[in-house]
Amino acid sequence: MQGRTLNFVTKSMVKTKRIPKQARAKARIAAILSATDALLRSSLPSNITTTAIAHTAKIPVGSVYQYFRDKNDILEQLYAEASKQVEELVLAEQSAVDPALGFDHINRTLLQCFWQTARSHPTFGALTRWANREHSFVEVTPGTDSSLARLIMRTFEITGINLPAARKEAVLRISVTVVSAVVDIAFEEDDADKAQTLIDELALLLSGYLA
């Protein structure tokens, strides 16, 4: 399994068992995902069962296994969808920034945008914590071809940071790994102020590293 991005999931993490071709099949999958999403708003991922999902979706439990391997398969897809929603908002913020503000300001702005968006999302935090427990550090660490890497590279470009070819991949890899790891740790922190401090320190760390 390849890693996810700023807590954005790669396609390799989403492997539905059966590709729907008919309207009824698509409706069933939508019902399963919607039911699981609803359950996530009041229950921990570990406490959700396929039986509960089927009951909430008002379908036979066997129908769940027609389209998904297991509960984790469903959670992976929901995580991908939640990640995409967060990613789109960060991309919109990035496209609106003024390059003249410089890297430090833009870096802080984008990290805060992500953090506030992710924390306010109804299921993203729970799914991130679930993924951290289900997968190894290597599996959840995004690569240099991830959407997080593209966001970071775009930030470099719009703020005029030009990296030598010999350093570019290494700097990008380190930046992506550090951002992903600190954000994951922040999501494990129950104290909102302490979590925010981690994000603030992350911004300072990146600014110092890339100064």
Rank of each mutant, 00 (worst) to 15 (best):
M153L: 13
D104Q: 14
L39I: 02
A25G: 12
P142W: 06
L110E: 01
V179W: 03
A166D: 13
G3Q: 03
F103R: 04
S147L: 11
P142A: 14
A82T: 02
T177M: 11
V182D: 00
S34P: 04
P164H: 07
W130A: 00
A186D: 00
V61W: 08
A100H: 13
K84D: 15
S63N: 15
K17H: 11
F187G: 00
A82E: 00
L75Q: 02
P60L: 05
A80V: 05
A131R: 01
D73N: 14
Q22K: 15
D193C: 10
E134M: 13
H121G: 04
Q196H: 09
S207G: 07
A35S: 04
T117M: 12
I32W: 01
A181M: 09
L75C: 04
R18Q: 15
L148H: 00
R28I: 15
Q112H: 13
A186R: 03
A54R: 04
A52C: 10
D190I: 08
Q2W: 11
S120G: 05
F68I: 02
D104Y: 06
I32F: 02
S207R: 04
N72L: 04
R24G: 08
K15A: 15
A170W: 07
L198E: 06
I161Y: 08
E189Q: 15
L111N: 01
A25H: 15
S180R: 01
L163V: 11
V64Y: 02
V171G: 02
H105G: 01
Q77T: 10
G102W: 05
L172D: 03
R167D: 14
T50N: 07
A25Y: 09
N7T: 10
K71M: 05
D184F: 12
A23M: 11
V140M: 10
F103D: 03
A38G: 09
T159Y: 04
T144S: 10
E93N: 09
L78W: 04
R108T: 12
I19Y: 15
A211R: 13
G3S: 05
R129D: 03
Q112T: 09
V140E: 06
T141E: 06
N7C: 09
L40K: 01
G102K: 06
E93I: 03
K17C: 07
H105C: 09
L210D: 00
W115S: 01
M153F: 10
W115T: 02
P142Y: 07
V64K: 01
L91F: 08
R154H: 11
D104H: 11
A54H: 07
G62M: 09
T159Q: 06
S42K: 12
F187T: 02
E81R: 14
Y67E: 05
T128Y: 03
H135R: 12
G143Q: 06
L163P: 04
V183P: 00
A38F: 04
P164R: 08
